[in-house]
Design a protein around this nucleic acid. Sequence first.
DNA 1: CCACAAACAAGAGCAGTGCTCTCGTTTGTT
DNA 2: AACAAACGAGAGCACTGCTCTTGTTTGTGG
Lengths: 232, 232
Amino acid sequence: MPTATPRTARDLARVELTRAILASARAQLAAVGPGELSVRAVARDVGMASSAVYRYFPSRDHLITALLVECYDESGEAVEDADDAVPRAKYRKRWLAMAGAFRAWAQTNFHEYALLYGSPVPGYAAPDETIGPAQRVPGRLLGLMADVEAAGLPLGPGETSVPRAVRASFRPIREAYAGVGDERMMRALTAWATLLGQLTLELFGHLESGVLDYDAHFTHMMGRVADDLGLP
Amino acid sequence: MPTATPRTARDLARVELTRAILASARAQLAAVGPGELSVRAVARDVGMASSAVYRYFPSRDHLITALLVECYDESGEAVEDADDAVPRAKYRKRWLAMAGAFRAWAQTNFHEYALLYGSPVPGYAAPDETIGPAQRVPGRLLGLMADVEAAGLPLGPGETSVPRAVRASFRPIREAYAGVGDERMMRALTAWATLLGQLTLELFGHLESGVLDYDAHFTHMMGRVADDLGLP
DNA sequence: CCACAAACAAGAGCAGTGCTCTCGTTTGTT
DNA sequence: AACAAACGAGAGCACTGCTCTTGTTTGTGG
């Protein structure tokens, strides 16, 4: 929802300052992590009293919400760009490009990744305005699945039947991505879980004494996931 | 490393109070999440000045470390118990039991799960004493793999060759679980990522508007992972 | 042009935090 | 009995999110 065009100088100053506050908060996020984000530090950074910041963001949680959508959008755009840079019919390459782009974004934006996919910030319930941006990344992955399905590509071996209860369970997703079959949908959801789990393991240090070459490990694992997804 | 048997009354009081402090912190963790854990609140709870707590835990981080090992051990014990309750040769059932027990522990100990597998606590580097307990859960999963390998069970279809670089990359794990082949090891690591990723998605609310029946979804997904692991 | 209300910025203040320092007391050992 | 170590409590520092009050700036309707 784009803000109405600022008519008065005050309106302009408001959007400018809002942007500056958000930018400062984002810069801090690069250094300290979501829980340590300090409104007072942001205020010092943009050069005003801490109480003045509350004119623009009524609470710290509102600031975090803004950061949340910004980061969801940023990561979403990163994987969309990566997807768009690959010919539409090169399905496997698209998947690998998206997974790689997502990982690259997470690596260079560690605290932002933690904000999005790590522990939820305490006492904070994500408002509805975040669910749209939050679904950009998994949405693109399912978009790839829809393309594959439309192309009539066969699934790999190991076709398990999806029980009725499970099928009914992800009906909300099914409706948003009609055309993707149950089996493929189930594999796509598993792929998303694997991708996120692997990134969590890697970035949060759970493989520290077990895996040496994260790049090779990740690439190979995503290739296996591509196999499971039936991407040629 | 068990503490030396307390000889004097003071030593006894010390282990008692240390336990009480840890218990209070753990109780708070059930309510508020790792980042909100307050030393002062713990002090109030056990009925002493906040400064006195620092005689037992030199910093908040040390307290968190103690909670970390306690929770790693607790979750590890939960999956070990689940594993032990199933006949050794019922491999598939063992996997499903472990995954289910791990999920159950995570569900009933949300903040503890967030502490272990969510965003790392800021400015905190997990000391070496945590890596042992941290590997109990994935260790048991790999233990199952070793059993399967020893039984000579074949792997399912889709045998991908593990590149040399990847094979060399998880050499530390290979050495700890000798006997597990590269292919099976790689699948086990993928299974672990999938399990953790799915739990993260589910518990941290990323499936909120997409999946309705978490139980059915999880059980089915873990069954698919069992297929991939070649568990009959 | 002027009055008026809304938006704004700043400062003080509240209740809370992790942590340190000091002080007097208790405890165990020599 | 003497002494050092461990202990508990309190005050204090620097910090946090947030609120309230005060005085100023800005845009607008008469």
